[in-house]
Design a protein around this nucleic acid. Sequence first.
DNA 1: TATATGACTGACCATCAGTCATAATGTTAC
DNA 2: GTAACATTATGACTGATGGTCAGTCATATA
Lengths: 215, 215
Amino acid sequence: MGTAERREREKEQRRNDIIDAAEAVFFSKGIANSTMDEIADVSELSKGTLYLYFKNKEDLYLAIILRGLAILQAKFEETLKAHESGIEKTEAIGRAFFEFAKTHPDYFQAMLYFESADLPYDDESGYAAECLSQSNHTFEICARAVQAGIDDGTIRPDLDPMKTAMTLYGVSVGLLQIVSTKGQMIRECHNLNPDELIEYFFELIGNTLRTQIDE
Amino acid sequence: MGTAERREREKEQRRNDIIDAAEAVFFSKGIANSTMDEIADVSELSKGTLYLYFKNKEDLYLAIILRGLAILQAKFEETLKAHESGIEKTEAIGRAFFEFAKTHPDYFQAMLYFESADLPYDDESGYAAECLSQSNHTFEICARAVQAGIDDGTIRPDLDPMKTAMTLYGVSVGLLQIVSTKGQMIRECHNLNPDELIEYFFELIGNTLRTQIDE
DNA sequence: TATATGACTGACCATCAGTCATAATGTTAC
DNA sequence: GTAACATTATGACTGATGGTCAGTCATATA
Protein backbone atom coordinates (compact mmCIF):
# COMPACT_ATOMS: atom_id res chain seq x y z
CA MET A 1 0.00 0.00 0.00
CA GLY A 2 1.14 3.53 -0.67
CA THR A 3 1.39 4.77 2.88
CA ALA A 4 4.93 5.97 2.39
CA GLU A 5 4.01 7.73 -0.84
CA ARG A 6 1.06 9.44 0.78
CA ARG A 7 3.27 10.48 3.69
CA GLU A 8 5.72 11.95 1.23
CA ARG A 9 2.96 13.90 -0.53
CA GLU A 10 1.62 15.24 2.74
CA LYS A 11 5.09 16.26 3.80
CA GLU A 12 5.57 18.13 0.56
CA GLN A 13 2.22 19.82 1.13
CA ARG A 14 3.24 20.89 4.63
CA ARG A 15 6.47 22.25 3.32
CA ASN A 16 4.57 24.33 0.80
CA ASP A 17 2.12 25.51 3.43
CA ILE A 18 5.01 26.69 5.55
CA ILE A 19 6.55 28.54 2.61
CA ASP A 20 3.17 30.17 1.96
CA ALA A 21 2.98 31.40 5.54
CA ALA A 22 6.61 32.52 5.44
CA GLU A 23 5.94 34.51 2.28
CA ALA A 24 3.07 36.31 3.95
CA VAL A 25 5.25 37.28 6.89
CA PHE A 26 8.57 37.94 5.12
CA PHE A 27 6.94 39.92 2.34
CA SER A 28 5.03 42.11 4.75
CA LYS A 29 7.97 43.10 6.97
CA GLY A 30 11.21 41.90 5.40
CA ILE A 31 13.47 39.12 6.62
CA ALA A 32 15.12 41.18 9.36
CA ASN A 33 11.87 42.15 11.06
CA SER A 34 10.13 38.81 10.68
CA THR A 35 10.24 36.25 13.45
CA MET A 36 9.99 32.50 13.28
CA ASP A 37 7.37 32.72 16.03
CA GLU A 38 5.14 34.78 13.80
CA ILE A 39 5.60 32.41 10.88
CA ALA A 40 4.72 29.55 13.21
CA ASP A 41 1.57 31.42 14.21
CA VAL A 42 0.51 32.14 10.64
CA SER A 43 1.22 28.59 9.50
CA GLU A 44 -0.70 27.26 12.50
CA LEU A 45 2.21 25.03 13.43
CA SER A 46 4.65 25.10 16.30
CA LYS A 47 8.01 26.73 15.86
CA GLY A 48 9.69 23.37 16.37
CA THR A 49 7.90 22.00 13.32
CA LEU A 50 9.30 24.76 11.12
CA TYR A 51 12.74 23.50 12.00
CA LEU A 52 11.78 19.94 10.98
CA TYR A 53 11.23 21.22 7.47
CA PHE A 54 13.87 23.95 7.22
CA LYS A 55 17.38 24.18 8.58
CA ASN A 56 16.99 27.73 9.79
CA LYS A 57 15.37 31.07 9.11
CA GLU A 58 17.58 31.89 6.16
CA ASP A 59 16.94 28.52 4.58
CA LEU A 60 13.23 29.16 4.70
CA TYR A 61 13.82 32.48 3.00
CA LEU A 62 15.88 30.77 0.33
CA ALA A 63 12.97 28.43 -0.36
CA ILE A 64 10.96 31.53 -1.25
CA ILE A 65 13.76 32.79 -3.45
CA LEU A 66 13.69 29.46 -5.28
CA ARG A 67 10.05 30.10 -6.12
CA GLY A 68 11.02 33.51 -7.46
CA LEU A 69 13.77 32.01 -9.58
CA ALA A 70 11.31 29.50 -11.03
CA ILE A 71 8.92 32.30 -12.03
CA LEU A 72 11.75 34.26 -13.59
CA GLN A 73 13.02 31.24 -15.50
CA ALA A 74 9.58 30.48 -16.89
CA LYS A 75 9.29 34.08 -18.00
CA PHE A 76 12.69 33.95 -19.68
CA GLU A 77 11.94 30.68 -21.49
CA GLU A 78 8.68 32.09 -22.71
CA THR A 79 10.33 35.30 -23.87
CA LEU A 80 13.02 33.32 -25.67
CA LYS A 81 10.33 31.56 -27.73
CA ALA A 82 8.28 34.66 -28.41
CA HIS A 83 10.89 36.50 -30.43
CA GLU A 84 12.52 35.90 -33.77
CA SER A 85 15.99 37.33 -33.99
CA GLY A 86 18.70 36.81 -31.38
CA ILE A 87 19.09 40.49 -30.64
CA GLU A 88 15.35 40.75 -30.07
CA LYS A 89 15.38 37.71 -27.81
CA THR A 90 18.22 39.24 -25.80
CA GLU A 91 16.70 42.66 -25.38
CA ALA A 92 13.30 41.14 -24.58
CA ILE A 93 14.85 39.01 -21.85
CA GLY A 94 16.44 42.11 -20.40
CA ARG A 95 13.11 43.89 -20.39
CA ALA A 96 11.44 40.80 -18.95
CA PHE A 97 13.83 40.98 -16.04
CA PHE A 98 12.97 44.59 -15.27
CA GLU A 99 9.31 43.71 -15.76
CA PHE A 100 9.68 40.90 -13.25
CA ALA A 101 11.13 43.31 -10.71
CA LYS A 102 8.03 45.45 -11.15
CA THR A 103 5.32 42.79 -11.18
CA HIS A 104 6.86 40.67 -8.43
CA PRO A 105 8.57 43.22 -6.19
CA ASP A 106 8.51 40.88 -3.22
CA TYR A 107 10.18 38.00 -4.99
CA PHE A 108 12.59 40.43 -6.54
CA GLN A 109 13.48 41.90 -3.17
CA ALA A 110 14.17 38.40 -1.91
CA MET A 111 16.34 37.73 -4.93
CA LEU A 112 18.38 40.83 -4.19
CA TYR A 113 19.09 39.26 -0.82
CA PHE A 114 20.27 36.14 -2.62
CA GLU A 115 22.58 38.22 -4.80
CA SER A 116 24.10 40.21 -1.98
CA ALA A 117 24.35 37.73 0.89
CA ASP A 118 27.19 35.38 1.53
CA LEU A 119 25.45 32.04 1.53
CA PRO A 120 26.58 28.52 2.50
CA TYR A 121 26.71 27.20 -1.05
CA ASP A 122 28.80 24.21 0.01
CA ASP A 123 26.15 22.88 2.36
CA GLU A 124 24.28 20.41 0.19
CA SER A 125 21.50 19.93 2.72
CA GLY A 126 20.17 23.48 2.46
CA TYR A 127 18.50 25.52 -0.23
CA ALA A 128 21.49 27.72 -1.02
CA ALA A 129 23.15 25.24 -3.34
CA GLU A 130 19.87 24.69 -5.18
CA CYS A 131 19.39 28.45 -5.56
CA LEU A 132 22.87 28.78 -7.00
CA SER A 133 22.19 25.96 -9.43
CA GLN A 134 18.92 27.51 -10.57
CA SER A 135 20.59 30.88 -10.86
CA ASN A 136 23.13 29.25 -13.15
CA HIS A 137 20.34 27.80 -15.21
CA THR A 138 18.90 31.29 -15.57
CA PHE A 139 22.23 32.51 -16.89
CA GLU A 140 22.18 29.71 -19.42
CA ILE A 141 18.82 30.81 -20.78
CA CYS A 142 20.21 34.31 -21.28
CA ALA A 143 23.31 32.88 -22.89
CA ARG A 144 21.11 30.93 -25.36
CA ALA A 145 19.54 34.20 -26.46
CA VAL A 146 22.93 35.77 -27.07
CA GLN A 147 24.12 32.65 -28.86
CA ALA A 148 21.05 32.79 -31.12
CA GLY A 149 21.96 36.35 -31.99
CA ILE A 150 25.51 35.41 -32.86
CA ASP A 151 24.24 32.53 -34.98
CA ASP A 152 21.74 34.60 -36.93
CA GLY A 153 24.16 37.49 -37.29
CA THR A 154 22.19 40.07 -35.30
CA ILE A 155 24.75 40.16 -32.47
CA ARG A 156 28.45 40.86 -32.76
CA PRO A 157 30.20 37.54 -33.37
CA ASP A 158 33.12 38.42 -31.12
CA LEU A 159 30.99 38.28 -27.97
CA ASP A 160 31.12 35.36 -25.55
CA PRO A 161 27.53 34.30 -24.80
CA MET A 162 28.06 33.16 -21.21
CA LYS A 163 30.26 36.13 -20.28
CA THR A 164 27.76 38.47 -21.85
CA ALA A 165 24.85 36.86 -20.04
CA MET A 166 26.54 37.03 -16.66
CA THR A 167 27.70 40.58 -17.16
CA LEU A 168 24.28 41.74 -18.27
CA TYR A 169 22.63 39.99 -15.36
CA GLY A 170 25.07 41.49 -12.88
CA VAL A 171 24.73 45.03 -14.14
CA SER A 172 20.94 44.74 -14.28
CA VAL A 173 20.81 43.60 -10.68
CA GLY A 174 23.00 46.50 -9.68
CA LEU A 175 20.88 49.04 -11.45
CA LEU A 176 17.67 47.64 -10.05
CA GLN A 177 19.18 47.59 -6.60
CA ILE A 178 20.14 51.22 -6.72
CA VAL A 179 16.70 52.11 -8.02
CA SER A 180 15.12 50.04 -5.29
CA THR A 181 17.12 51.33 -2.31
CA LYS A 182 17.72 54.89 -3.46
CA GLY A 183 14.65 55.47 -5.60
CA GLN A 184 13.34 58.18 -3.34
CA MET A 185 16.64 60.04 -3.46
CA ILE A 186 16.77 59.75 -7.25
CA ARG A 187 13.31 61.22 -7.43
CA GLU A 188 13.78 63.99 -4.88
CA CYS A 189 17.37 65.11 -5.33
CA HIS A 190 17.64 64.64 -9.05
CA ASN A 191 14.05 65.00 -10.18
CA LEU A 192 14.33 61.76 -12.07
CA ASN A 193 11.85 58.98 -12.49
CA PRO A 194 13.77 55.78 -11.67
CA ASP A 195 12.20 54.17 -14.74
CA GLU A 196 13.95 56.77 -16.86
CA LEU A 197 17.24 55.50 -15.56
CA ILE A 198 16.38 51.98 -16.65
CA GLU A 199 15.31 53.12 -20.09
CA TYR A 200 18.53 55.10 -20.26
CA PHE A 201 20.42 51.90 -19.47
CA PHE A 202 18.78 50.11 -22.39
CA GLU A 203 19.73 52.93 -24.70
CA LEU A 204 23.29 52.87 -23.43
CA ILE A 205 23.94 49.19 -23.94
CA GLY A 206 21.54 48.58 -26.80
CA ASN A 207 24.01 49.48 -29.51
CA THR A 208 26.83 47.72 -27.78
CA LEU A 209 25.51 44.28 -28.58
CA ARG A 210 24.18 44.86 -32.05
CA THR A 211 26.29 43.98 -35.07
CA GLN A 212 27.88 47.18 -36.35
CA ILE A 213 26.71 47.80 -39.92
CA ASP A 214 29.56 50.07 -40.87
CA GLU A 215 32.36 47.57 -40.47
CA MET B 1 40.26 78.79 28.08
CA GLY B 2 39.89 76.00 25.54
CA THR B 3 38.40 73.40 27.85
CA ALA B 4 35.33 72.91 25.73
CA GLU B 5 37.39 72.62 22.58
CA ARG B 6 39.73 70.10 24.15
CA ARG B 7 36.73 68.12 25.33
CA GLU B 8 35.37 68.14 21.84
CA ARG B 9 38.68 66.91 20.45
CA GLU B 10 38.88 64.12 23.01
CA LYS B 11 35.36 63.07 22.21
CA GLU B 12 36.19 62.97 18.53
CA GLN B 13 39.23 60.88 19.36
CA ARG B 14 37.13 58.43 21.36
CA ARG B 15 34.69 58.18 18.52
CA ASN B 16 37.53 57.36 16.15
CA ASP B 17 38.99 54.82 18.55
CA ILE B 18 35.63 53.09 18.66
CA ILE B 19 35.38 53.05 14.88
CA ASP B 20 38.89 51.58 14.73
CA ALA B 21 37.91 48.79 17.08
CA ALA B 22 34.66 48.24 15.21
CA GLU B 23 36.55 47.94 11.95
CA ALA B 24 38.79 45.27 13.39
CA VAL B 25 35.80 43.24 14.52
CA PHE B 26 33.39 43.87 11.64
CA PHE B 27 36.06 43.30 9.02
CA SER B 28 37.16 40.04 10.56
CA LYS B 29 33.73 38.42 10.85
CA GLY B 30 31.15 40.52 9.04
CA ILE B 31 28.39 42.59 10.58
CA ALA B 32 26.06 39.67 11.21
CA ASN B 33 28.56 37.69 13.27
CA SER B 34 30.03 40.61 15.18
CA THR B 35 28.75 41.56 18.60
CA MET B 36 28.75 44.86 20.38
CA ASP B 37 30.26 43.09 23.38
CA GLU B 38 33.30 42.14 21.37
CA ILE B 39 33.68 45.64 19.98
CA ALA B 40 33.49 46.92 23.56
CA ASP B 41 36.24 44.49 24.53
CA VAL B 42 38.52 45.47 21.68
CA SER B 43 37.99 49.18 22.22
CA GLU B 44 38.61 48.68 25.95
CA LEU B 45 35.39 50.46 26.76
CA SER B 46 32.14 49.25 28.18
CA LYS B 47 29.24 48.43 25.91
CA GLY B 48 27.24 51.27 27.36
CA THR B 49 29.88 53.74 26.22
CA LEU B 50 29.55 52.56 22.64
CA TYR B 51 25.95 53.62 22.80
CA LEU B 52 26.93 57.08 24.03
CA TYR B 53 28.76 57.59 20.76
CA PHE B 54 26.61 55.62 18.32
CA LYS B 55 22.87 55.14 18.06
CA ASN B 56 23.08 51.43 17.43
CA LYS B 57 25.10 48.67 15.84
CA GLU B 58 24.12 49.58 12.29
CA ASP B 59 25.00 53.22 12.87
CA LEU B 60 28.48 52.22 13.96
CA TYR B 61 28.78 50.19 10.78
CA LEU B 62 27.66 53.17 8.74
CA ALA B 63 30.42 55.25 10.32
CA ILE B 64 32.87 52.76 8.83
CA ILE B 65 31.14 53.01 5.47
CA LEU B 66 31.56 56.76 5.63
CA ARG B 67 35.31 56.25 5.92
CA GLY B 68 35.17 54.04 2.86
CA LEU B 69 33.23 56.65 0.93
CA ALA B 70 35.82 59.27 1.85
CA ILE B 71 38.64 57.08 0.54
CA LEU B 72 36.73 56.42 -2.65
CA GLN B 73 35.98 60.10 -3.15
CA ALA B 74 39.59 61.09 -2.68
CA LYS B 75 40.58 58.47 -5.22
CA PHE B 76 38.00 59.76 -7.68
CA GLU B 77 39.04 63.39 -7.26
CA GLU B 78 42.66 62.44 -7.77
CA THR B 79 41.80 60.37 -10.84
CA LEU B 80 39.78 63.22 -12.26
CA LYS B 81 42.83 65.49 -12.11
CA ALA B 82 45.27 62.91 -13.43
CA HIS B 83 43.72 62.57 -16.85
CA GLU B 84 43.34 64.86 -19.78
CA SER B 85 40.33 64.09 -21.91
CA GLY B 86 36.84 63.55 -20.53
CA ILE B 87 36.54 60.03 -21.87
CA GLU B 88 39.85 59.15 -20.21
CA LYS B 89 38.72 60.68 -16.95
CA THR B 90 35.51 58.68 -17.08
CA GLU B 91 37.10 55.35 -17.88
CA ALA B 92 39.83 55.95 -15.31
CA ILE B 93 37.22 56.62 -12.64
CA GLY B 94 35.51 53.38 -13.57
CA ARG B 95 38.76 51.51 -13.25
CA ALA B 96 39.55 53.32 -10.00
CA PHE B 97 36.29 51.99 -8.60
CA PHE B 98 37.15 48.40 -9.46
CA GLU B 99 40.64 49.02 -8.13
CA PHE B 100 39.15 50.29 -4.88
CA ALA B 101 37.12 47.10 -4.55
CA LYS B 102 40.36 45.15 -4.83
CA THR B 103 42.63 47.18 -2.61
CA HIS B 104 40.02 47.86 0.07
CA PRO B 105 37.86 44.72 0.00
CA ASP B 106 36.65 45.31 3.55
CA TYR B 107 35.48 48.85 2.96
CA PHE B 108 34.00 47.74 -0.32
CA GLN B 109 32.11 44.91 1.36
CA ALA B 110 30.72 47.42 3.83
CA MET B 111 29.70 49.68 0.98
CA LEU B 112 27.82 46.83 -0.65
CA TYR B 113 25.83 46.65 2.56
CA PHE B 114 25.07 50.34 2.22
CA GLU B 115 23.91 49.80 -1.36
CA SER B 116 21.66 46.86 -0.62
CA ALA B 117 20.19 47.65 2.80
CA ASP B 118 17.11 49.67 3.49
CA LEU B 119 18.42 52.41 5.73
CA PRO B 120 16.74 55.13 7.81
CA TYR B 121 17.74 58.00 5.56
CA ASP B 122 15.14 60.28 7.12
CA ASP B 123 16.68 60.07 10.57
CA GLU B 124 18.96 63.09 10.68
CA SER B 125 20.61 62.02 13.93
CA GLY B 126 22.26 58.93 12.47
CA TYR B 127 24.96 58.28 9.91
CA ALA B 128 22.63 57.03 7.17
CA ALA B 129 21.68 60.48 5.93
CA GLU B 130 25.34 61.51 5.87
CA CYS B 131 26.25 58.38 3.92
CA LEU B 132 23.56 59.12 1.37
CA SER B 133 24.78 62.67 1.04
CA GLN B 134 28.39 61.55 0.52
CA SER B 135 27.21 58.92 -1.93
CA ASN B 136 25.53 61.71 -3.86
CA HIS B 137 28.71 63.70 -3.83
CA THR B 138 30.50 60.69 -5.30
CA PHE B 139 27.98 60.61 -8.12
CA GLU B 140 28.68 64.24 -8.76
CA ILE B 141 32.39 63.62 -9.19
CA CYS B 142 31.59 60.96 -11.77
CA ALA B 143 29.16 63.29 -13.47
CA ARG B 144 31.88 65.94 -13.71
CA ALA B 145 34.06 63.49 -15.62
CA VAL B 146 31.26 62.76 -18.07
CA GLN B 147 30.53 66.48 -18.42
CA ALA B 148 34.18 67.14 -19.18
CA GLY B 149 33.98 64.57 -21.94
CA ILE B 150 30.91 66.15 -23.43
CA ASP B 151 32.57 69.55 -23.26
CA ASP B 152 35.79 68.45 -24.92
CA GLY B 153 33.93 66.36 -27.48
CA THR B 154 35.28 62.95 -26.47
CA ILE B 155 31.92 61.77 -25.15
CA ARG B 156 28.65 61.66 -27.05
CA PRO B 157 26.94 65.03 -26.55
CA ASP B 158 23.50 63.45 -26.24
CA LEU B 159 24.35 61.83 -22.89
CA ASP B 160 23.08 63.21 -19.59
CA PRO B 161 26.04 63.42 -17.18
CA MET B 162 24.16 62.70 -13.97
CA LYS B 163 22.07 59.90 -15.45
CA THR B 164 25.17 58.38 -16.95
CA ALA B 165 27.07 58.60 -13.68
CA MET B 166 24.31 56.99 -11.68
CA THR B 167 23.75 54.26 -14.21
CA LEU B 168 27.44 53.45 -14.45
CA TYR B 169 27.76 53.42 -10.68
CA GLY B 170 24.75 51.13 -10.30
CA VAL B 171 25.85 48.64 -12.91
CA SER B 172 29.39 48.59 -11.55
CA VAL B 173 28.15 47.83 -8.07
CA GLY B 174 26.02 45.01 -9.48
CA LEU B 175 28.88 43.49 -11.39
CA LEU B 176 31.23 43.71 -8.44
CA GLN B 177 28.60 42.22 -6.20
CA ILE B 178 28.09 39.22 -8.41
CA VAL B 179 31.85 38.76 -8.68
CA SER B 180 32.16 39.08 -4.92
CA THR B 181 29.37 36.68 -3.88
CA LYS B 182 29.57 34.22 -6.75
CA GLY B 183 33.24 34.46 -7.65
CA GLN B 184 33.93 30.88 -6.68
CA MET B 185 31.08 29.65 -8.85
CA ILE B 186 32.28 31.75 -11.79
CA ARG B 187 35.69 30.23 -11.42
CA GLU B 188 34.62 26.65 -10.88
CA CYS B 189 31.55 26.23 -13.07
CA HIS B 190 32.57 28.45 -15.92
CA ASN B 191 36.36 28.36 -15.73
CA LEU B 192 36.44 32.12 -15.75
CA ASN B 193 38.63 34.49 -13.85
CA PRO B 194 36.23 37.07 -12.32
CA ASP B 195 38.62 39.80 -13.43
CA GLU B 196 38.02 38.74 -17.02
CA LEU B 197 34.36 39.51 -16.50
CA ILE B 198 35.20 43.01 -15.36
CA GLU B 199 37.54 43.60 -18.29
CA TYR B 200 34.79 42.29 -20.52
CA PHE B 201 32.45 44.85 -19.02
CA PHE B 202 34.82 47.68 -19.89
CA GLU B 203 35.03 46.45 -23.46
CA LEU B 204 31.26 46.20 -23.66
CA ILE B 205 30.48 49.72 -22.51
CA GLY B 206 33.67 51.41 -23.65
CA ASN B 207 32.44 52.20 -27.11
CA THR B 208 29.02 53.16 -25.87
CA LEU B 209 30.21 56.40 -24.35
CA ARG B 210 32.74 57.46 -26.95
CA THR B 211 31.76 59.89 -29.65
CA GLN B 212 31.06 57.92 -32.81
CA ILE B 213 33.48 59.01 -35.52
CA ASP B 214 31.42 57.78 -38.43
CA GLU B 215 28.43 60.01 -37.94
C1' DT C 1 -5.34 -5.19 21.17
C1' DA C 2 -0.45 -4.18 21.54
C1' DT C 3 3.56 -2.20 19.62
C1' DA C 4 6.22 0.84 16.51
C1' DT C 5 6.76 4.98 13.85
C1' DG C 6 7.44 9.63 13.09
C1' DA C 7 5.17 14.07 12.90
C1' DC C 8 4.40 17.51 16.08
C1' DT C 9 4.71 20.30 20.31
C1' DG C 10 6.06 24.11 23.35
C1' DA C 11 8.81 24.86 27.24
C1' DC C 12 13.38 25.88 27.45
C1' DC C 13 18.17 27.70 26.38
C1' DA C 14 21.75 30.76 24.61
C1' DT C 15 22.81 34.85 22.48
C1' DC C 16 22.86 39.54 21.96
C1' DA C 17 21.20 44.47 21.03
C1' DG C 18 20.08 48.00 23.73
C1' DT C 19 18.99 50.38 28.61
C1' DC C 20 19.65 52.49 33.02
C1' DA C 21 20.83 53.20 37.82
C1' DT C 22 25.12 54.00 39.72
C1' DA C 23 29.96 55.18 39.92
C1' DA C 24 34.01 57.58 38.57
C1' DT C 25 36.19 61.42 36.76
C1' DG C 26 36.82 66.02 35.71
C1' DT C 27 35.57 71.06 36.23
C1' DT C 28 34.29 75.25 38.40
C1' DA C 29 33.57 78.35 42.30
C1' DC C 30 34.62 79.81 46.70
C1' DG D 1 41.67 72.48 49.35
C1' DT D 2 37.11 71.20 48.95
C1' DA D 3 32.29 71.33 48.02
C1' DA D 4 28.98 71.43 44.41
C1' DC D 5 28.15 70.36 39.89
C1' DA D 6 28.63 68.31 35.18
C1' DT D 7 30.12 64.95 32.16
C1' DT D 8 31.45 60.50 30.92
C1' DA D 9 31.82 55.60 31.81
C1' DT D 10 30.24 51.25 33.67
C1' DG D 11 28.27 46.59 33.58
C1' DA D 12 24.41 44.20 35.37
C1' DC D 13 20.02 43.70 33.55
C1' DT D 14 16.04 43.14 30.21
C1' DG D 15 13.50 41.64 26.35
C1' DA D 16 13.44 39.67 21.99
C1' DT D 17 14.42 35.93 19.21
C1' DG D 18 16.79 31.98 16.74
C1' DG D 19 17.22 27.45 17.60
C1' DT D 20 16.76 22.70 20.50
C1' DC D 21 14.93 18.59 22.55
C1' DA D 22 12.51 15.45 25.63
C1' DG D 23 8.18 14.02 25.44
C1' DT D 24 3.21 13.43 23.34
C1' DC D 25 -0.06 11.55 20.28
C1' DA D 26 -2.26 10.04 16.10
C1' DT D 27 -1.74 6.57 12.86
C1' DA D 28 0.12 2.41 10.77
C1' DT D 29 1.56 -2.27 11.42
C1' DA D 30 1.58 -6.88 13.54
